[in-house]
Design a protein around this nucleic acid. Structure first.
Lengths: 232, 232
DNA sequence: GTGCTGATTTGACCGGGATCAACGCGGGAT
DNA sequence: ATCCCGCGTTGATCCCGGTCAAATCAGCAC
């Protein structure tokens, strides 16, 4: 994606308000990095050594119990910020779901830079508050929605988020057809369900002609109204 | 609590780094307010008109579906910040669980003040990041833990948080005996369970001599090790 | 004290989603 | 083409936690 070539400059979300000299400095301390699908970038409960900026691709934030249960607690799309600035340890692993391009900063460097550039901290605060809102509405889903509502809500959010982030161009309304960056197991880990339940809900929605599943990873929303109704 | 008399000055969490003149200005735009138990301060999906600083008491942040299901998505204790700065609408209602003292700011005033005082924004960013971490670990609980694990985790967190916030004095390790600020229904709303299930888990823990329930709102942890084991 | 009211506990039963198991499909290697 | 192998789907059964109902308890007014 040519307009995303430089590491940070094009990231309007983080960089709005920074002047050119500041952007040059920020670029200087960041390092471009490509992560293969399935590769981790940050480990749960590790020292918080790096933070990063997603340029392209999708990553999951995941926590797990000793006995192997996983819960995906967040999903990072292009222009999202990942990692834990101003903190000693990370509380979630970050793993690439697709091949991902990120701009990595040593946390200490980033913290220092941020402390000296209030405009950056302000943007970061706004994003963090928005992420907190999103996370809280996901709690509603996990705690109070049934399997059908969870899957419908998930598909609608997917359509929105994947569209919002189609490269650097302007958004063009929610997508009706898209490639899921998740396996069935990962969908289950997002929704607090099992793989079998997710599969059954997908099959049911397909049988009811609410969605179509042209291939394992592709979804087409046929009846957005019905899907919205089922999201509760 | 005498050392908390002024509205903002004593709130180390938000105000560290502000000089005296700044504190005076911030105090000037805030208004002290007492909320009776059960009274709302902020409504879900409303315009974001005010933000506030908790001085004393406990409040819940709650979202609900049209059909009346509720999920508590956060709990605010003294020194916590509530409301949605830099945003048009609020995504959760805020309701006092106990009588609560808060320092209320018109959001516009607060936003402007924050924009002019990077030290305040920095503190707010740190708190928001910490809250996001806490919220994400709560997602693990909602999505992947069973009823016994949820209740055990809840009691342990309660003991920690209530102790951390005993007035303005220093913490003295997690409490073993405390008054729950929640009704059984509210515990259920935090954990994504029903009131009956919560009650049964409490009864079971009492029968197993892991906790004691001297009265409906009081809890005493008799066997912290066992409780920790059950938290998963 | 009695009676009222709402919260909590306890019991009986049921169902949604988990679990266990078998099967199908599709893409890659050869 | 065939064989794998991992992912996904479908079926059968089970059980945890929800639902409905009744009993009990704690305040509070009088």
């Amino acid at each position: 994606m040519s307009s995303c070539d430089t590491c940070v400059v094009r990231n309007r979300a983080i960089c709005a308000g920074l002047d050119n000299a500041e952007l040059v400095t920020l670029n200087a301390i960041g390092r471009r990095r490509t992560i293969a699908a399935g590769e981790p970038l940050i480990w749960e409960d590790d020292d918080s050594l790096l933070v990063a900026n997603v340029i392209d691709g999708v990553l999951k934030l995941v926590t797990s119990t000793e006995d192997g249960r996983e819960q995906i607690v967040g999903v990072a799309y292009p222009s999202d910020f990942i990692g834990r600035p101003f903190g000693q340890t990370t509380k979630a692993s970050v793993v690439a779901l697709t091949e991902a391009k990120v701009c990595v900063f040593a946390r200490r460097d980033f913290d220092r830079f941020a402390g000296e550039h209030p405009a950056l901290e302000h943007k970061l605060l706004e994003r963090t508050l928005a992420e907190l809102d999103r996370t809280r509405s996901w709690m509603m889903l996990l705690g109070r929605k049934n399997a059908a509502e969870k899957v419908a809500t998930f598909l609608l959010e997917m359509a929105d988020r994947l569209d919002d982030n189609r490269g650097c161009q302007a958004a063009a309304g929610p997508a009706t057809r898209f490639a899921l960056p998740f396996s069935r197991q990962q969908v289950a880990d997002v929704l607090g369900l099992t793989i079998e339940t997710v599969s059954r809900q997908f099959s049911r929605l397909k049988a009811d002609r609410v969605i179509d599943l042209p291939s394992r990873r592709d979804v087409e929303i046929l009846d957005r109204r019905a899907l919205t109704a089922q999201a509760g």
